[in-house]
Simulated assay, not measured.
Amino acid sequence: MSDVHFGRISHPRIVDALVDEVNGAGLDLVVVSGDLTQRARTREFVAARAMLDRFDAPVLVVPGNHDVRAWWHNPFARLWRSSKRFRQLVSPDVTPSFAEPGLAAFGLNSAHGWTIKGGRIRPEHVAEMETFFSRQPLDAFRVLVLHHHLLVLEGLDSDEVSRGASRAIGAAQRARVDLVLCGHLHTSHVAPVELSPATAAGGGHRVVIASAGTATSSRGRGVDRDVNFYNWITVEPERFVVQERRFDAGAGRFEAARESTFDRDRRPARSGA
């Protein structure tokens, strides 16, 4: 899920509906790809932390651009202590990881410093990601999580790509990442992307990018302006399925909207990646 935006919750029952459905599914991991708050206020972080604490499954969460201090309130804090409240109230780790048999996930921080919309990925975080995936079994399903986008996607009317994205997508290719989970654009969009040999050494590689719509806020955009989405991923030995689940306000629950199935790329990761 992404773009929760406490401070702009769309429906009084939506957070409870989301938590209840997730907890009833027996999931292995809950991923939140940023923008837990609307204005990085303390009370918004407290509400977000309370929601995260209700999930039964482990949670991997990264910050979004709305989770860092607004530059017009305090430019110094935005530059030097931009993620202080996130680290104190949500998680001290802005590049979290998760590994269990069959599944490996890593979170990149793309929201800090002077960045506002497009985001920025630091080289040292990319190196940390490569090291993490190099230590995982070759048959593990590999997931990369960040708030901003790494590529311009066909069908999305946006060119907001994070600075440092080319380095990150090259590393993801070398590490044979299967799935990228992101948000930011408040539009639900799932698509496979073929990474050419020119993107990174070692030949082409297909990665699926699942951009989640806003899970619980009133800030949807475009065709999803008044809609709340989150994604439910099921991983099997030879394939994986991304199901987009949409909130029905009348029924007070999330329901399946669209489903995309992809064969897993079983070629091994590059040695030394």
Rank of each mutant, 00 (worst) to 15 (best):
D3H: 07
V4H: 02
V4P: 00
H5Q: 11
F6A: 05
F6D: 04
G7L: 05
I9G: 05
S10Q: 11
S10V: 03
H11M: 09
H11N: 12
R13L: 12
R13Y: 12
V15M: 02
D16H: 12
L18S: 01
G26R: 09
D28Y: 04
V30I: 06
V30F: 07
V31G: 02
S33Q: 08
D35R: 04
Q38N: 11
R43W: 15
R43H: 15
F45H: 10
F45P: 00
R49C: 07
A50R: 13
L52I: 13
D53L: 05
R54D: 08
F55W: 02
V59K: 07
L60P: 00
L60Y: 00
V61H: 02
V62N: 02
R69G: 09
R69M: 12
P75C: 09
L79G: 09
W80F: 15
W80T: 14
S82L: 07
S82P: 07
F86K: 02
R87I: 08
V90F: 04
S91P: 03
D93H: 06
P96S: 03
S97Q: 10
E100P: 00
P101I: 10
A105P: 02
A105K: 01
F106N: 02
L108S: 04
N109A: 02
I116C: 11
G118T: 09
G119M: 06
I121K: 08
R122F: 10
P123N: 07
V126C: 09
V126F: 03
E128H: 12
M129H: 00
E130W: 04
R135F: 03
R135T: 13
Q136K: 13
Q136M: 14
L138D: 15
L138A: 14
A140R: 06
V143W: 01
V143M: 05
V143E: 01
V145Y: 00
V145D: 08
E154P: 08
E154D: 15
S158E: 09
D159K: 14
D159L: 11
E160D: 14
S166Y: 09
S166D: 12
A171G: 10
A171M: 05
Q173G: 14
R174M: 13
A175T: 09
D178C: 11
L179D: 01
L185E: 15
H186D: 08
H189I: 00
E194I: 09
L195Y: 02
A198P: 01
A198K: 14
T199Y: 04
G202R: 05
G202T: 03
H205D: 05
I209Y: 01
A210I: 00
S211V: 13
S211I: 06
S211Y: 00
G213M: 00
T214M: 05
T216Y: 01
S217R: 03
S217N: 11
S218I: 06
G220V: 03
R221L: 12
G222R: 03
V223N: 10
D224N: 12
R225Y: 09
V227N: 03
V227T: 12
W232N: 12
W232G: 01
W232M: 13
T234E: 15
T234C: 10
P237N: 03
F240Y: 13
V241F: 00
E244S: 13
E244M: 06
E244T: 08
R245E: 06
R246H: 07
G250T: 10
A251I: 06
A257D: 14
E259L: 10
R264M: 07
D265S: 10
R267P: 00
P268N: 04
A269Y: 08
S271E: 14
G272D: 06
A273T: 04
A273P: 02
